[in-house]
Simulated scan of single mutants.
Amino acid sequence: MKRRDVVKWMGLAAVTSACPTVLSSSNPYFQKPGLQLFTVMKLLDQDFEGTLSAVQGIGYRTVETVGAFGKPASQVKELLQQYNLYTPSQHLMPGTLYQDFSAYNQGKIGWDEIVKRFTYAFDFNRVEYFIEEAIGRAQTLGQDYIVWQLNWLPEYGKKELKQHVKAFNTAGKMCKEAGLQFAFHNHDHEFTSVGDTTYYDLLVQNTAPDLVQLEMDFMWATFAGADPVVYLKRYADRYKMVHLKDLTKDRKITIPGKGTENFQNLLSVSEQVGVQYAFVEFDQPNAPMQEIAEAYNYLTRIKKP
């Protein structure tokens, strides 16, 4: 991240700042989109401070962290405060998993290896350890939510369902005792049918509502053939956060506004059911700063139906 790029994206912010906000919610953190910083992870690894400056320059004020980026949480807190970025939530990064993702981004390891390391990092026998680790980070960063990004593999079944339910309830209890909230984030395979329901529904229905909240990724639900609006209404009291990315007609991930998702309706329903934060996330960025700027520009221009 070169300093001239920071100036470039701050210039774009001057254009977007005059745009109407996406919603009229009384929650100031839901009026404009936030950013899941995984989207700019490569840039953060190259120039952490410069990237935060550019993110802030575009107009983002709310960010969701990826653990503490392999850094001391106190250092991350100082830099977020320096650039006026508020962080209410983190995705879990047990042990050295962040460094593993960095190695993947640098082309040192492949995707299959990342899946193996991800599964190992979320060992069910070590739940108490890595949740305690995350709680410490969250308390330092001043966050309210700890999110388990679900990696439901196609071969999983009832055994893994029970393991996840137990782990989620344990994590939820630990977070509640620490004054925090626990949530899990969906992808696509968990919407696989089992009888007349899905594994996702069973995960929600078998975890304690007072301990386990939800973060809906609209695109991955749509990709799986599920209707995000149906789920927002079905478990209206559980959804606290949503992720914003889009899906093209040929089923490719893209940034909001470039695909088929109806964000006006999705965000309107999210507001109605009490979602607190909406984060832009793009799993496969090519030009991260340009893409998150375009996403911010689009989302701050659209209006409710």
Score class of each variant (00 low, 15 high):
109 I>C: 06
117 R>G: 02
78 E>C: 03
218 F>T: 07
295 A>F: 08
32 K>C: 11
280 V>M: 03
154 P>C: 10
151 N>A: 14
35 L>S: 13
29 Y>S: 13
33 P>H: 10
207 T>D: 04
261 E>P: 00
118 F>P: 00
150 L>A: 05
112 D>M: 07
234 R>L: 10
229 V>A: 01
212 V>C: 08
301 R>G: 14
237 D>H: 10
10 M>H: 14
102 S>D: 03
26 S>Q: 07
181 Q>H: 10
103 A>K: 12
99 Q>E: 13
132 E>D: 15
198 T>K: 06
193 S>I: 02
38 F>N: 08
208 A>Q: 09
8 K>F: 13
216 M>V: 09
162 K>R: 08
57 G>A: 12
80 L>A: 11
99 Q>S: 12
78 E>V: 13
305 P>F: 11
206 N>E: 13
262 N>H: 11
161 L>D: 05
273 V>Y: 00
77 K>E: 11
136 G>I: 06
26 S>T: 09
150 L>C: 10
201 D>Q: 12
115 V>H: 02
54 A>W: 04
220 W>R: 04
267 L>W: 00
40 V>R: 04
170 T>A: 10
127 V>M: 08
301 R>C: 14
75 Q>E: 15
223 F>A: 13
294 E>I: 05
243 H>P: 05
95 G>W: 02
120 Y>V: 10
211 L>Q: 09
185 H>K: 06
83 Y>S: 10
274 G>P: 01
75 Q>I: 05
12 L>F: 12
192 T>A: 15
52 L>D: 09
72 P>R: 13
87 T>R: 00
84 N>V: 07
190 E>T: 07
272 Q>D: 12
118 F>T: 15
65 T>D: 06
60 Y>M: 12
59 G>V: 10
73 A>C: 06
110 G>Y: 01
229 V>E: 00
113 E>T: 12
234 R>S: 09
145 Y>W: 14
171 A>M: 09
70 G>T: 05
210 D>M: 01
54 A>N: 09
79 L>F: 02
246 D>R: 05
290 Q>C: 02
33 P>W: 04
33 P>E: 11
137 R>P: 00
63 V>R: 07
80 L>S: 10
171 A>W: 05
177 E>T: 10
183 A>Y: 01
249 K>W: 04
144 D>S: 14
114 I>H: 03
68 A>N: 13
167 A>C: 09
81 Q>A: 14
151 N>W: 07
10 M>W: 13
24 S>I: 00
206 N>P: 01
84 N>P: 01
66 V>L: 12
212 V>P: 04
154 P>M: 08
75 Q>T: 09
109 I>H: 05
164 H>W: 08
75 Q>K: 11
251 R>K: 15
264 Q>I: 00
152 W>S: 08
292 I>K: 08
268 S>Y: 12
50 G>F: 03
123 D>N: 15
78 E>W: 00
134 A>N: 13
65 T>F: 05
71 K>C: 02
297 N>V: 03
53 S>D: 13
153 L>Y: 01
224 A>K: 09
69 F>V: 05
162 K>C: 00
297 N>R: 14
143 Q>E: 15
107 G>R: 03
138 A>R: 01
225 G>S: 11
144 D>N: 12
34 G>Y: 03
146 I>R: 09
250 D>H: 11
231 Y>Q: 01
